[in-house]
């Protein structure tokens, strides 16, 4: 057990983390590209057209994984923030800050693909559907986090502010989701919400799960890249950065 603890402790030191992530990234990229190709092939080619929505339903292979990721990243951002505040783990603070733009990107992607999917089905670009509305609010939560981080000069202070905001947001997400669902079914009546996934034959479902995993691996890659950049920025006048820069 203490090997894991030692390794986690080692990861805490920026130079070790930088080298370790450098070695890890190529492998992750290979895995990610492989999963994406498999998922896209499964989703775009193999999966039979949906009897009702025909080929337009294939948009779910981007929309649904992106929506899952937007929530997943917000939760992991808030947890990383909490670890950063409570145990003053610098790396957790950096994970919290660097996850925000990636999460915002996935949320925006989920919104746009949601409306692109809605247009052919219901003729309008925007539907006040419960899921899409929650996604829209989540996007504003992300914008709040990013705007707050940019507004504070001292980066250590900004990291603590963002962590507090992310935690407050995390507590509010279920409340917002429940009240939007309630608000939505109230005005429209309890029809099946428009964005329920069509009944999934396995050949449709597998590519969806593969895409979801591919997005998670992608998130890990983008996170590591952003963390490396943030580390260089923060430790720009420390010895290990100078050596590293001097070499390359």
């Amino acid at each position: 057990m203490n090997i894991v603890m030692k390794w986690i402790h080692l990861l805490g030191s920026p130079p070790y983390f930088y080298r370790f992530s450098g070695k890890l990234l190529p492998w992750l990229t290979v895995i990610c590209v492989g999963l994406l190709v498999w998922g896209l092939y499964g989703g775009l080619v193999q999966a039979p057209a949906d009897y009702q929505q025909s080929d337009a339903f294939r948009i779910i292979y981007v929309h649904v994984p992106a929506a899952w990721m937007s929530l997943f990243i917000y939760v992991s951002m808030a947890i990383a923030g909490a670890i950063g505040i409570i145990w003053h783990v610098k790396m957790a603070e950096i994970v919290c800050i660097t996850s925000a733009p990636i999460g915002a990107m996935f949320t925006f992607l989920a919104l746009v693909t949601g409306s692109l999917w809605g247009k052919p089905m219901w003729g309008t670009w925007w539907v006040w559907d419960a899921r899409l509305t929650s996604e829209l609010i989540l996007l504003f939560l992300y914008f709040g986090v990013i705007a707050l981080y940019r507004a504070i000069e001292d980066k250590r202070m900004a990291a603590r502010a963002v962590a507090i905001l992310a935690l407050v947001g995390l507590v509010n997400i279920p409340i917002i989701h429940y009240s939007v669902e309630w608000w939505n079914t109230l005005h429209q009546g309890p029809t099946v919400t428009k964005f329920d996934k069509p009944s999934m034959a396995t050949s449709m479902l597998i590519p969806l799960l593969v895409m979801a995993i591919a997005f998670k691996v992608y998130y890990f890659i983008a996170l590591l890249l952003r963390m490396r950049t943030e580390l260089l920025q923060r430790e720009r006048n420390s010895k290990w950065v100078k050596e590293l820069v001097g070499l390359s």
């Binding site: 609010i137 504003f140 507004a151």
Partner: peptide
């Protein structure tokens, strides 16, 4: 409390707080 130290915290305050006000507004 998050934005009191900022020069023009007013705009960011609205951005931070409005999403959290939505449940109250709905009910």
């Amino acid at each position: 409390a998050l934005t009191v130290g900022l020069r023009q915290g007013g705009i960011i305050l609205a951005l931070l707080v409005f999403p959290l006000y939505i449940p109250v507004l709905i009910f």
